[in-house]
Design a protein around this nucleic acid. Structure first.
Lengths: 339, 339
DNA sequence: TTGAAAGCGCTACCAA
DNA sequence: TTGGTAGCGCTTTCAA
């Protein structure tokens, strides 16, 4: 690596002390355009010129070693490339950038030991806070990190304990709204698909479905089609469900995950069923598929932007010891249209 | 922030010098399970125990300040949340992790000034190298970064100059292969859709299409439907193209971007055309839509994993001053099936 | 408004 | 095999 320009180089070249250069380099620009530091305006200007000419860039390692601040946070999700988290990460990057923070991203791969490693690694980088989407079995890991006293905000999935801030989505309300929408269209025989293992978000959506059906006096029509989780491609399973549902006069489905939604579309093609004529859907999350059939398929989307914003703001408040509501609940909402 | 355990705490507690602790903490584990450092095994063990008990974690800022190494690289693409880059970033994260490197991700938003800022910021973080997907107008910015002498590898888009390594995909060959596939199915009247502005990847794919048509003696059937770029949703434009193409007896299309592919599907529905009966497609990139119609739609996928791997390895070689081929060309390949 | 100097935690160098 | 110590580049404190 080529030798970089240091603060001493600038100081020497400008004929001032390093202290002065440090003042100037860290000065904020006031609204009147002047620099907010106890330095003569001319001197400051000269320092700025020299710094620019020499291509000076502050060495963050040195600065943070001395000051104890890094203005850096870590965001750990299960998979940064999944559309859901990719979008959240992107927003976080933007928001943090504007607030003068840098974000370190990492993926836990749904592995608690890896999450543990990553947290240690991030602590080594002196991050000031953590935004984490917990993975299965990460309770102990996170409570340990809580004991490091590093400000932490949980997103997407919950873990009990008051060491964390939380920004979560009300899945029960989402399932309720999805079902209400279909009821509003006039459907009475509405079914939902669920899984045979406990996946909190899906179970809650199913509960919301059940509540909506009950409230509408349709409890007799409640039918939760339970599929085995993750063994085979769900497409064939869904096809089977649809075939039978069609025979028994069902007219609408809530498909409470993106995967089930995709499988639903596959099944429609396979069974030669037509959207709107044979079934109406409310799907989940975003997919290219939802735009395909005009005017688009109604689907529930999570407030990704809001998750990013609220979680970052909450984390910042915790870091700065400001009072803040530690438990934020957001709502997904129904999108009717397509492209 | 709570006071963290430092190397001195460990040294004091273990009754040894900081030097020794440093040795132990930086020792690699040999294949026989022993630590590769000039320290008595018992002493080393004791230090390890104390470090663990005290929850010691190396302060990377201090280490890198002193050693001049950070084992950190930066990856700057236009948008970390786009499926294409998200996938590449994910692979890079994995590969780098295994190699003991940390990756700083950032999105340039297709803005050259922002790219410039980000590079400066990354240099401030003492990254040892850069993997960059250049955006329009970033030539100057990158040549400047080249002048910082920071090892840089370009991906996805090219910029002339020998200060960079490159890992690029042969788009011409991709367009050629896509077209060959349709010709192999027996199609003779194959068209392609392009844009009225120069987008290197699309133009190259069109060239590959033309070459394939010529080689097959179908030059008379070459037809490039040029669409205005980015003004309106391309779906309607594509619908118009399809309607006319259908009338003039065209039987197949190469759709050289994901967006055009999606629009193609939309147009098919809109015009009540049936896949395989009316048109065959070769699409581009990945989409949920390609799996919808059994047995799936053939599409060209880019070697994302390979891009990540080659670019990281190349960057590492440049950093380590090892000889390496600076210009790597990869190939996209055709995927026939669906889910 | 300016500067000298201490020291953040670590690694590298040299000496024992 | 072990330890003492300089110093990486910066911010901070204190004094001028």
């Amino acid at each position: 690596m080529i030798k970089k320009t240091t603060i001493r180089d600038v100081a020497r070249e400008a004929g001032v002390s390093v202290t002065l250069v440090s003042f100037v380099m860290n000065a904020k620009v006031k609204e009147n355009g002047e620099l907010d530091c106890p330095v003569n305006a001319d001197t400051a200007e000269r320092v700025l010129q020299v710094a620019k000419r020499l291509g000076y860039k502050r060495n963050n390692a040195a600065a943070s070693l001395r000051s104890g601040r890094t203005h850096t946070i870590a965001v750990i999700t299960s998979d940064i490339s999944s559309p859901f988290f990719a979008e959240i990460c992107r927003h976080l990057e933007n928001i943090a950038y504007k607030a003068g923070y840098t974000v370190l991203f990492a993926s836990s791969d749904e592995s608690a030991p890896k999450l543990s490693n990553l947290i240690d690694k991030m602590i080594g980088y002196n991050v000031e806070g953590l935004i984490v989407a917990p993975c299965a079995g990460s309770e102990k890991v996170l409570h340990r990190s809580g004991s490091y006293n590093i400000p932490t905000v949980l997103i997407d999935r919950n873990i009990p304990g008051d060491a964390f801030g939380r920004v979560l989505v009300d899945n029960e309300a989402g399932g309720y709204e999805a079902t209400r929408y279909l009821i509003g269209m006039g459907h009475k025989r509405i079914e939902i698909i669920g899984y045979d293992i406990e996946i909190a978000s899906v179970s809650e959506r199913v509960k919301g479905y059940e509540r909506a059906m009950q409230e509408a006096g349709l409890e007799e029509n409640i039918r939760v089609n339970v599929l085995p989780y993750g063994i085979s491609p769900s497409a064939d399973e869904v096809t089977k469900v649809f075939r039978e549902a069609h025979l028994r006069g069902t007219s609408a489905f809530v498909l409470p995950t993106k995967k089930l939604s995709k499988s639903g579309f596959y099944a429609m093609t396979k069974l030669n069923l037509r959207m709107h004529r044979d079934f109406d859907f409310v799907c989940y999350d975003e997919s290219d598929v939802y735009d395909l059939i005009p005017p688009g398929i109604p689907h529930m989307v999570q407030p990704l932007h809001e998750i990013a914003e609220k979680s970052f703001n909450l984390l910042l408040n915790i870091i700065d010891n400001k009072p803040a509501e530690m438990n934020v609940t957001l709502h997904s909402h129904l999108v009717e249209g397509g492209a």
